[in-house]
Amino acid sequence: MTGTRSAAMTSPRTRRIKGTSQVPAMIFLYILSFLVVIPFVWMISLAFTPNHEAFGSVSLIPANPTLENFGTAWIDANLGRAMFNSLLVAVAVVACNCVFSVLAGYAFALMPFPGSFGIFLGILATTAIPVSVTLIPLFLMARGIPLAGGNDILGQGGSGLLDTLVGVMLPYLILPMNIFLARQYFSTSPPELAEAARIDGASEWRIFRSVYLPLAKPLVAVVAIFSFVGVWDDFLWPLVVTNTESSQTVQLALARFLASGNIQYGPLMAGAVIATIPVVILFLFNQRAFVSGLADGSVKG
C-alpha cells in the first residue's frame, strides 16, 4: 500500500476532478482504505497470537507468533469435516447453476416462446422474497421429502433431508439471480450464429453447447462465483437445516465453536482465516468476474 503513494501523486492524466485537489483526496482515500482493511489485519494477527496473549492489549505484530491456533481450531471446531461439507455443497451448487441457470437464461434470451417473458419476470420477482418468508416452508419441505431419511412415500415418519448435505444445498441449486444474469448476457450475443448453425442442421442443444456456451465463459465465471460465494457464506439456512457435525458447513462450525464455551479469540480467528481462504483465493484469481457479476445484475434490466 505504501509503495504506490508517490506514483499515485504523479498520475499523468486527471479527468473530471481538477488537478489541484489530488493530494487531500488521496490522503482521504488512504485513511478510508486503511480503516476498511484494518479488521482483516487484526484477524490475521490474532490468528497467529498465542491464545493466552489474545486478551488484554494485543500488538499488531505478534511477539511470539504461533500456528497452534490453527491446530486448535481445526480439531475443536471440527473444521476439517466442515470444510469438506462446505466444499462438496458448493461444488454441487456451482455445477447445477452453471448448467440449469445458464441454460434457462439462454432460452429466455435467444429462444423465446409464448409466455416466456412472463415466466422470466416471475423468476426475477422471486429475488426480492425475504429469506425468512421461505425459511419455514423450505424446512418443512426438506423434512417431508418422500422416501428420504426414513420417510415413507408421503414424506411422513422420518427426518427427510434434514441434517444432510443434500438438504443444505437444496435452496441454492438454481438461483434466480443467475438466470437473470444469463439472460442479460445472452441478450447481447448475436442471434445470427444460431440461425447459421440451424441451417447446417445442428440440434438446439448442440447450438447451445458448441456455439454459445464457449462464447459465454465470462458469464459462467460470474455464475460460478456468485453461486459459490452465496452458498459458502450463507448462515441462516444451514443453521436451521443441520444439527450435527456430520452436515454442518464451515460458517456454522465457527459459530458453534464460538458458542461452545469461553471465547478463545486466537483459535476463533484462525478458524475464520481458514473459512475465508477459499473465497479470497477465488476472488484474487477472478476479480473482474466478481465485480462485473455484481454490476451486471443491477440496473441493466
Binding site: V37, P39, W42, M43, A272
Partner: peptide, 19 residues
Amino acid sequence: ALYLPHIVSLTVVSMVWLW
C-alpha cells in the same frame, strides 16, 4: 481492498468485530 469486506462472510466479519 475496499471490496474485501463484501466477499468475507457476515459470520466471519462479525466474529472479528466481536473481538
